[in-house]
Amino acid sequence: MLTITKKGDNRVDVDLNGHIDAVNMRVALDELIAASEGVEHGRMLYTIPEFAMPSLAAIGVEMTYLPGLFSLLGKYDRCAVLTDANWIQKAAEIEGALFPGIEIKGFDLDQVTLAEDWLDEAE
């Protein structure tokens, strides 16, 4: 399940927990794009307590959204990724290094306060 929550004018939280199918992917990406309207210097808290590979159909849906998703990169300055999977933390930080203008940092699931403090640092 992929859940999008707008937490403020410039804060969006994404929760990825378990299996994602094409329907859930489409709904969540539409919600992410809508929640990102008007965001400037945004912050994102991405929580992944349990990762499962999305279905092939969900990946196909995501591919159709890529142009819109790339346009979101300019709206966000920081993204904290909460997960106990070290490989996801490292992959997220590498992704942040590849895309200019956004810092991505990984945190353990029990470091919510530390992650939120980091998100708020540069405001």
Results as ranks from 00 to 15, higher is better:
Met1Cys: 12
Leu2Gln: 03
Thr3Gln: 13
Ile4Phe: 08
Asp9Ser: 14
Asp13Met: 11
Val14Trp: 10
Leu16Asp: 07
Leu16Trp: 05
Gly18Lys: 03
Gly18Ala: 02
Ile20Cys: 13
Asp21Ile: 00
Ala22Gln: 03
Ala22Arg: 07
Met25Ile: 01
Val27Lys: 09
Val27Tyr: 09
Ala28Ser: 10
Ala28Ile: 01
Ala28Tyr: 07
Leu29Val: 01
Asp30Leu: 12
Glu31Asn: 13
Leu32Gln: 03
Leu32Gly: 06
Ile33Cys: 06
Ile33Ala: 09
Ile33Leu: 14
Ala34Met: 11
Ala34Phe: 11
Ala35Glu: 05
Ser36Thr: 03
Ser36Cys: 00
Val39Pro: 03
Glu40Cys: 13
Arg43Ile: 08
Met44Phe: 11
Leu45Phe: 07
Leu45Ser: 09
Tyr46Asp: 14
Thr47Arg: 15
Ile48Asp: 00
Pro49Gln: 03
Glu50Ser: 14
Phe51Ala: 08
Phe51Cys: 10
Ala52Glu: 15
Ala52Phe: 15
Met53Gln: 15
Pro54Ile: 04
Pro54Trp: 04
Leu56His: 15
Ala57Glu: 10
Ala57His: 04
Gly60Trp: 08
Val61Arg: 06
Glu62Ser: 15
Met63Ala: 15
Thr64Phe: 13
Tyr65Lys: 13
Pro67Gln: 08
Pro67Thr: 10
Pro67Tyr: 10
Gly68Ser: 14
Leu69Gln: 09
Leu69Ser: 04
Phe70Lys: 15
Ser71Asp: 13
Tyr76Pro: 00
Tyr76Asp: 01
Tyr76Arg: 05
Asp77Gln: 15
Arg78Phe: 07
Arg78Gln: 04
Cys79Trp: 10
Cys79Asp: 07
Ala80Gly: 04
Leu82Val: 02
Thr83Pro: 02
Asp84Lys: 00
Ala85Gly: 11
Ala85Cys: 10
Asn86Pro: 12
Ile88Gln: 04
Gln89Asp: 03
Lys90Asp: 11
Ala91Arg: 06
Ala91Val: 00
Glu93Trp: 00
Ile94Val: 13
Ile94Lys: 11
Gly96Asp: 01
Ala97Ser: 11
Leu98Gly: 05
Leu98Trp: 08
Leu98Met: 09
Phe99Pro: 03
Pro100Asp: 04
Pro100Arg: 06
Gly101Trp: 01
Gly106Met: 03
Phe107Trp: 02
Phe107Tyr: 01
Asp108Gln: 14
Asp108Met: 13
Asp108Leu: 13
Asp110Arg: 09
Val112Cys: 04
Val112Gln: 11
Val112Ser: 10
Val112Phe: 06
Leu114Arg: 11
Ala115Gln: 03
Glu116Pro: 01
Asp117Ile: 08
Trp118Pro: 05
Trp118Lys: 04
Leu119Ala: 03
Glu121Pro: 08
Glu123Leu: 14
Glu123Gln: 15
